[in-house]
């Protein structure tokens, strides 16, 4: 069972490795965006789906990663290869702080506080126009000397695989077990020796760092960092992808990210309706199938095996 999974994963990664050969420039771009959303959704899912901390600041953390690296590159001439790790570090530090801030809060209070954090970040970007270039966006250097979609595709692919491996390792280790225990019943978990504070802050820190990584690489791919990256609309996309794919499962956000991003590119041909269509799909999924595509498939399997 374990071996088949590993082989399957290798085949998929291998296919992705040769994928750019068969794609045109536009399709490569779509794939890069897909991988960005895979990282975002999977890391949000680690926090929301596995520890029950529904954060609305995840896009903001991507923004922290992107702006840190972008500003360092523009103002100090630092290479993005150094700037992105620093952005990840900074996102992790802020994530650690927000995690601590939210410790005493549960459920709705935490969500609303993260919403406030995200809004504060937005206001700062818009106000510190001279540093961030506000809504105009910050023009940043790329990661490659010679711009190449294929090159970026591989960079994004490697980053996404590393992120997913970190997440996979976490949820299948003792840490993941503790995550789920805390999500199920915090008080019971504490009474059984789970260090709830450590677990919650750890989830916040790692998830924020991964969002910072995704945002940093994405920003240096787009070459323009705008307040779009840390916007609530972005947060909505990440949340929808996770819910449609299946919150609280490893594979769900990956499926959700690919399906919705490709779908949205397809709809885009008919005008700017993709957010509305997304919303309606996400709304009906959340209402009628809260466990997403993965939940539906699992239920289907279970039905099949009993009948």
């Amino acid at each position: 069972m374990k071996n088949t999974k590993v082989i399957l994963a290798c085949i998929i990664v291998g296919l992705f490795g040769i994928l750019p050969l068969g794609l045109n420039v536009y399709q490569q771009h779509v794939m890069i965006v897909c991988l960005f959303y895979v990282m975002m959704s999977a890391s949000w899912n680690l926090l929301a789906g596995y520890t029950g901390q529904v954060s609305f600041a995840h896009a903001a953390f991507a923004g922290i990663g992107a702006y840190t690296s972008g500003i360092l590159a523009v103002k100090a001439g630092l290479s993005p290869w150094l700037g992105i790790p620093l952005g990840v570090l900074f996102a992790a530090v802020i994530g650690f702080g927000v995690g601590l801030l939210c410790l005493k809060m549960g459920g709705i209070y935490l969500s609303l506080t993260t919403l406030g954090v995200s809004e504060i970040f937005h206001i700062i970007i818009n106000n510190e126009y001279e540093i961030t270039r506000g809504t105009m966006g910050l023009q940043v250097p790329g990661l490659l000397v010679e711009y190449s979609k294929t090159g970026y595709f591989y960079i994004m692919l490697v980053t996404a695989i590393v992120s997913l491996l970190v997440i996979y390792w976490m949820i299948h280790s003792n840490i993941g077990l503790n995550f789920r225990a805390v999500q199920n019943d915090e008080k019971a978990a504490a009474s059984l020796g789970v260090d709830v504070i450590r677990i919650r802050v750890l989830a916040f820190t790692v998830s924020s760092a991964l969002a910072g990584l995704a945002g940093g690489v994405y920003g240096h791919y787009l070459l323009l960092i705008t307040p779009e990256i840390p916007s609530l609309d972005q947060q909505f996309l990440v949340l929808s992808m996770t819910i449609i794919g299946g919150m609280g499962s490893f594979i769900g956000p990956i499926i959700g990210a690919f399906t919705l991003e490709i779908l949205s590119e397809y709809i885009r041909g008919y005008g700017e309706y993709h957010v509305l269509v997304f919303g309606l799909i996400a709304l009906s999924m959340a209402r009628f199938a809260p466990n997403g595509v993965v939940g539906l498939v699992q239920a289907g399997w279970a039905k099949r095996s009993t009948s």
């Binding site: 029950g52 529904v54 609305f56 459920g107 709705i108 969500s111 609309d233 909505f236 949340l239 929808s240 819910i243 309706y273 957010v275 509305l276 919303g279 309606l280 996400a282 709304l283 959340a286 209402r287 809260p290």
Partner: peptide, 19 residues
């Protein structure tokens, strides 16, 4: 399930905005 309703109404708000 207060988080469930929060997520649903969040999606609803985006749907309404776009409508």
């Amino acid at each position: 399930d207060d988080l469930y309703s929060l997520i649903l109404t969040f999606i609803l708000s985006i749907v309404l905005q776009n409508t």
